[in-house]
């Protein structure tokens, strides 16, 4: 009963990939890959996705913990707000980031005025845009893990004299580590594929803000073959990393 729809589902996911593989210009692949702009984009993609994931971990884990554990008025609203980047078109997310953190943004104007710091058109901007879009993946995953974690271990820690912070660090965090790991992997994958918010907020400049998805998009304009090559590289890297991490964290 379930096998047929399952196979259709799998085919639905795999066929487009197959399309990429079939149409790839295999004969010129080597020379195309060696182009410095591809390596630049790949390096920037990996760097920014990793930094964005770290940023998400830094703020997302505490946020997930608060959502799961602290009962405060408006918690449902806050939880809904956290998921907004999931439903918001990324381009709109990018505009929203500009309006908040841009040179004339709500907060950005003060960053510029006080610290001379402007985020658009910088690699930091890329990281922020990716983190904005990827954060919900981490928060949702970690919140689920915190909810599922056995509270009584925290009781045990308290009776052993552990402060709330020590308990969180030495007991709760290790207990939810699989959830955090899974969330981080999802978060990283989302950040790696991020396009809309990045190009809107951080713009597109090779070596500084041009990540792989942006390079793919622009290559599509006049060189679809190059776009396929870039997509394959992105695909290969993410499959390798995700397969490696999934085994450790999720299963």
């Amino acid at each position: 009963m379930l096998v047929l729809p399952a196979l259709i589902g799998l085919a639905f996911l795999v066929l487009p990939l197959l399309g990429l593989l079939v149409r790839a210009p295999w004969s010129t692949l080597g020379t195309r890959l060696a182009r410095p702009e591809i390596l630049d984009a790949l390096r920037l993609s990996l760097l920014s996705a990793t930094l964005a994931t770290l940023l998400c971990l830094l703020v997302g884990v505490p946020l997930a913990w608060v959502l799961a554990r602290v009962d405060f008025p408006g918690r449902r609203l806050v939880r809904a707000l956290v998921t907004v980047p999931l439903v918001l078109p990324p381009v709109v997310g990018g505009v929203a980031l500009l309006l908040a953190l841009g040179r004339n943004g709500l907060v950005g104007r003060w960053l510029d005025r006080w610290f001379g710091l402007t985020l658009p058109f910088t690699t930091a901007g890329v990281v922020l845009a990716e983190a904005f879009v990827a954060l919900p993946f981490l928060v949702i995953s970690v919140e689920g893990a915190v909810r599922a974690a056995d509270l009584r271990y925290e009781d045990a820690a308290a009776t052993l004299g552990a402060s709330r912070w020590t308990t969180f660090r030495r007991v709760t965090l290790p207990l939810i580590a699989p959830g955090v790991g899974a969330g981080a992997v999802l978060c990283w994958a989302r950040a790696l594929g991020e396009f809309g918010a990045t190009i809107t907020f951080a713009g597109n400049f090779p070596g500084r803000t041009q990540t792989m998805p942006l390079a793919v998009y622009l290559a599509l304009e006049n060189d679809p073959q190059a776009a396929i090559v870039l997509s394959l590289v992105l695909l290969a890297v993410s499959v390798v990393v995700l397969a490696g991490l999934r085994g450790r964290w999720v299963l």
Partner: peptide
């Protein structure tokens, strides 16, 4: 030396409209 090479003309214009460029 541009700060960005936008994907289309409207995107380039937007950056000026929002006073980011």
């Amino acid at each position: 030396r541009p700060v960005s090479q936008e994907q289309d003309v409207k995107a380039a214009l937007t950056k000026v409209r929002l006073n980011e460029a």
